[in-house]
Amino acid sequence: MEQNFDLPEIHTPENLVYTKTKVLTDNVMHYCPGCGHGTVHRLIAEVIDEMGIQDQVIGVAPVGCSVLAYNYFDIDMQEAAHGRAPALATGIKRVFPEKFVFTYQGDGDLAAIGTAETIHACNRGENITIIFINNGIYGMTGGQMAPTTLPGMPTSTSPYGRDVKMMGNPLKITELVAMLPGTYFVTRQAVHTPALVRKTKKAIRMAFENQKLNRGVSFVEIVSNCNSGWKLTPVQAIKWLEENMLPFYPLGDLKVNGEMVSK
């Protein structure tokens, strides 16, 4: 038995500095241990909680690992067909312009099968928030190559590493949508360290606040891990992400208030 270091005397409401937001349900998430999806779900829920918009927000879940996202948010949600979330969000926002609408999508959903819906929702300047989880792999179907799989990266459908001559190049769709006049805020973040989690939360907050301005799409990419797909422990995966994903997908804002950020 481990030694007890509990300090029950300080467990009072005024001393509470962090607890799970009520905008998340009590359902245990189905994600693998250490998966960034859970962290991003929590940040979105915290932003909704802090903005006091739980009764005004409609979310759209994708197909992929986060297909069951609607089980975890205590908000009204719709489940889209693979890649179609931005089209659903367009339909919702056009009939409910006063509500807050967001999509939650992975790399296969957003950058492969849903490329057209993504590009055109961004180009039309739909007044929505798009949260894009990029872990460079198809997690749910068992670790196949994604549009964002790195060159040389092994997956179950590129078992000897992604050969770009044969399989094509990874798609930097975030850079692509930043070029479109319909996007207002485009940023790339990560959630594997406390400091990055705090920055990501600020970005998600801005992405939701922007809907009040009616200036176009706010697009937040989160470079995340897929421990199971990468066949690493969660702690190893964080190191791999820093050493391999981040050099190819550098973190930071690409477009703020409708203006490209100069590097």
């Binding site: 719709q78 179609r84 089209a87 659903l88 339909g91 055109h120």
Partner: peptide, 14 residues
């Protein structure tokens, strides 16, 4: 057409 029917889905679900 694919996007159009999915926009219908989003609005109909509202």
């Amino acid at each position: 057409e694919v996007a159009a029917i999915n926009m219908v889905y989003g609005a109909a679900a509202c």
